[in-house]
Each structure stands twice: as structure tokens, then as C-alpha cells.
Design a protein around this nucleic acid. Structure first.
Lengths: 146, 146
DNA sequence: CTATGTGCAAAATTTTTGCAAGCTT
DNA sequence: AAGCTTGCAAAAATTTTGCACATAG
């Protein structure tokens, strides 16, 4: 409840479209794509556009009300080092840094034992601002180096 | 060296294109996009096509020689629960499950102190096969539920 | 009334696919 | 020779944007 109030303090106005989208997002254990949310909301508001869904998701994500999973950007990024290691993503400039944090080798088997899932990989991702972007306050330009 | 041999055991043939792509991927601390790799490789093989780069990245990723970062699929997925919690992605059917693994509240500050980075979020992602997909061996159809 | 939000259509991005030609073994 | 692999072009798939109209406060 408090959360919902906070949303509307930041995302200024309420619209039935936005409310319907949030309602879908509140379905527990749902991890939908924009398209899926769109399909659900259309049952309630047939005329809604997919771009409205996308716009609201971006807005809600920006105020931290929704997590966008597994997406540094909407471009795939690759790493030639396929050993498990952890990453830091700078939200300012898009740089990805390797962390030399020691990996926890027990986590995969521990969760596998607990849940029955077959776990074949794991990945820890931190997000924030790199040294350069903290200093300049404005994002540095570099996109893909380092 | 052994790794490279293994690649070619699985990705059958060698081509100068593939070798050039792998060479770019081997640049330490580089986390490039397909486009960036393409630009680099073009310096060596001007006629290469972007689709060749993409095809090779998929192939290398499939044999585990390259990590694709932060990408369950190439569609954005959202989570209405923005509290830090961890996820399991089933590579068979695309389901995403919440894990109730306790989060480590010290990790952000620990890494921030060690590196000077400003860390504002972290996310742990496990990958593997869900119960259904283990049983059927073939992926279940469901894409976005649960 | 005014600033936001919406729908629609077009544009932009990114990734995948079909196919003929070229290489690797 | 056989069959992977490539380049090119077209198609798909996804997300973003411009603009006129609608609506919340």
C-alpha cells in the first residue's frame, strides 16, 4: 500500500492503464514480458497499446518500482571468459567490469538440493556507478571498453 | 590452449572469421556487443557480415565457450517485486522462478569498499532446468507463467 | 487550464533465417 | 566430394518516438 502511494508520488498521475499494468505486475511469481503484460491488460482495456505498456514499464523501472530482469541494456553483451565470475554494470556509461570477488562454489549444489532444480550455472551481477561516472556525475561516453 | 582445442571439437570447422571473433572475445575485460565485435573483426576481415558474428556467438555460447551476459532470452522480462531477491531461469522452457535464498546484505557494501564503485543493486541469477523440463527432457511449452 | 498520459503509426534496433557460393577436411 | 560456413538480403522480433487527442489534478 505504501509502495503504491510512493509510485504515484513519482510517476505523477494515475491512469486506468497504469493501474491495470501494475495489477498484472503484482501477480506473485509472474515474470512477464511486455508482450505478455499487454495481452493480460487487454482483457481489461481492449484498446490499450503496446507502447503504453512499454512506456509504463520503463517509467516504473526508473523509479525502482519494477525490476527489469537480466537486462543491462537491450543489446546482448558477451564475455569470452566463460569461467564463472561476477560482473558490475555501470548504469551511467554502460561499462561492464569483472569483479574478482571469490565465487561461492556451494551455491549451485545447495540450491539444487533444496529445490530439486538442476542448476548448471550462476551469475552475480551488481549495478551502480563506476568511478568515472561518480566523479563526472554525468555518464562518461565509453560504451563497451574494459 | 586446451580450451581452444575443445571449441573446435564441437564447433566443427575453423574459419578465419571464427578465429578472428574468438580473438576479439579473448581481449581481457572486454564485454562487447555483437556490433562492437563486428566492428573490430572488420578491421581484419573487411568483408565479414554481422550475421556471421551473431551466428558464431550463438554457437560459441551454446558450447559454453562464451558467456552471454544478462540475457535469459532476447526479450525483456519484468518483476513486480522490486525487493532484492534471486532468480532461477529454466533454459528449457524460459520460466523464471523466484528463489527464497536469503540475500547477502553485506555484499554491496563489501564490494563498494573494496573497489570504490558505487553499488546500488545486486542480483543473483541461476540457470538450469526446472523440474518439468528435467522430467520431460523436452522443454515444456510454457513461456512466461509462474 | 496545463502538464501528463494515451493510441496509433512509423522508425529504429537488434537478431534470425533462406539461399547460393565458398571453404575445410 | 560432402557438408559446414559465409555474405547478403529479407524477414522477424522488440522497443522507441512523434504527434494529435484525451484526461487527471
Amino acid at each position: 500500500m505504501i509502495l503504491i502511494i510512493i509510485i504515484f508520488v513519482i510517476v505523477r498521475r494515475k491512469s486506468k492503464q497504469r493501474e491495470a499494468i501494475i495489477k498484472v505486475l503484482r501477480v506473485p511469481t509472474s515474470h512477464p514480458s511486455a508482450e505478455w503484460i499487454y495481452e493480460q491488460v487487454k482483457k481489461e482495456i481492449p484498446g490499450i497499446g503496446l507502447s503504453t505498456v512499454n512506456r509504463n514499464l520503463r517509467a516504473l523501472e526508473k523509479v525502482g518500482e519494477v525490476l527489469e530482469l537480466h537486462a543491462f541494456s537491450n543489446t546482448a553483451r558477451f564475455d569470452g571468459n566463460s569461467n564463472t565470475h561476477y560482473h558490475f554494470y555501470c548504469e551511467g556509461c554502460g561499462k561492464i567490469l569483472d569483479l574478482d570477488e571469490p565465487i561461492d562454489p556451494t551455491i549451485e549444489t545447495r540450491i539444487a538440493r533444496k529445490t530439486g532444480l538442476k542448476v548448471t550455472r550462476h551469475h552475480l551481477e551488481l549495478g551502480g556507478l563506476c568511478l568515472g561516472c561518480q566523479k563526472h556525475k554525468l555518464p562518461t561516453d565509453n560504451q563497451f571498453e574494459r
